[in-house]
Design a protein around this nucleic acid. Structure first.
Length: 352
DNA sequence: ATAGGTCTGGGTCTTATGCT
DNA sequence: AGCATAAGACCCAGACCTAT
């Protein structure tokens, strides 16, 4: 079985501080191409022949009349649409399987939607005589190639709702507010479905900015399984910190209500820190006063308009304790899961 | 300009585990 | 037993790059 791709603990702050620096590949000019305003959220005519792998997958079928001058929009990037290839694979999507040799999968008969001519594409990544049909890696490459061609023709099997900077920042602020609350009293981390409800309450129906700074369509509710997958992939250091903070305590379930205003206030606070050159927590309490200010001024509904205030000795101690959690003493009850050492990505990101 | 390759990230399924 | 959750595995889409 192929090794699972390692998921990075995403540097959410980076997407906040410089959301447009990650993918600066110039998109084709809109003036060069006619944009077809079809989004994945719009109902597209399902193909009677399209293979739908799972019931939850959406039927997405491009018009076969799409020319190369037409593009299907993605949800996330209204200015950087992928082009739809004029080569349209014939037949239903088939995939290679380990131990099932099928050399017909190494070629794909396509129709050129511009000229109407048939064209056969060939798999080139591995010399055909070298393909080991028992090798999962070879099978994966063949399937990647085939899926790529179908996808480029606009034949999708599922829709992808890319996570936007504000959405990822929500997750980070959620953990930060929970950590801050846990310093005051014990609390219970809610079930992921409860967190999802709070998340959807913030975003559903709202128009926010994508990574390119363009307005998105009103946000749809995210599905629970997709949300929990994301929740478990990001901010693992903050999640671990919260678990450390709540360990051995009891209390009520705490779910902070996060508004877009709070998100933007938090983003501004972090940008200010970054502009001061403070990009990582220090085991020696360097810049402690700035971290104290950040922790003690996490945006809350009641104090959005009064962020600048002095911090108390208690808050100073709390911030020190939080920083100390970067290198906690060995906890005999949790020996196998040491808190990862906080670095640039812990609170304030460094550029990639 | 475009076909095709690589890499990364998101969605879903499956399984194990814990809680009610 | 039924449900919820976490985590691994896999598939597939998006973004970017390169060769032609």
């Amino acid at each position: 079985m192929p090794q699972k791709r390692k998921q990075r603990d995403e540097d959410l702050t980076d997407s906040v501080v410089s959301p447009h620096l990650k993918k600066l590949k110039a998109a084709p000019s809109l003036s060069q191409r006619e944009v077809l305003n079809v989004t994945t959220s719009n109902p597209l005519t399902p193909s009677p022949t399209q293979k739908i792998k799972h019931g939850n997958y959406v039927n997405i079928q491009p018009s076969t009349t799409l020319s190369r001058t037409h593009r299907i929009t993605t949800e996330t990037s209204s200015s950087n649409f992928p082009t739809v290839s004029r080569l349209h694979p014939r037949g239903v999507r088939r995939t290679a399987k380990v131990d099932q040799k099928d050399e017909t999968l190494l070629r794909l008969l396509c129709d050129d939607t511009e000229t109407g001519e048939a064209k056969e594409l060939h798999f080139r990544n591995i010399p055909h005589s070298s393909i080991d049909w028992t090798n999962a890696e070879h099978i994966r490459k063949i399937n990647n190639w085939r899926n790529q061609l179908y996808g480029r023709a606009g034949i999708k099997t599922k829709s992808i709702a890319m996570w936007l900077p504000d959405e990822e920042l929500w997750l980070e602020l959620y953990w930060q507010l929970s950590i801050a609350e846990s310093r005051l009293h014990g609390l219970l981390v809610p079930r992921s479905s409860v967190i999802l409800d709070a998340f959807n309450e913030t975003f559903v129906g709202r128009v926010i900015k994508d990574v390119h700074g363009n307005d998105t369509a009103p946000r749809q509710a995210r599905r629970h399984n997709a949300f929990t997958a994301k929740l478990n992939r990001v901010c693992s250091h903050l999640r671990e910190r919260l678990h450390q903070c709540t360990f051995g305590k009891s209390g009520d379930v705490f779910v902070p209500k996060i508004t877009l205003g709070m998100l933007h206030a938090y983003r501004d606070m972090k940008m200010e820190m970054r502009e001061m050159g403070i990009v990582e927590e220090s085991a020696y309490s360097d810049h402690l006063e700035h971290w104290c200010r950040l922790f003690s001024n996490l945006p809350k509904l009641e104090n959005l308009d009064k962020r600048e205030r002095s911090f108390s000795a208690i808050e100073y101690d709390a911030a020190t304790a939080l920083l100390d959690l970067a290198n906690p003493p060995v906890d005999a009850r949790r020996p196998a899961t040491p808190v990862p050492e906080l670095d640039v990505t812990s609170l304030i990101a460094s550029p990639n």
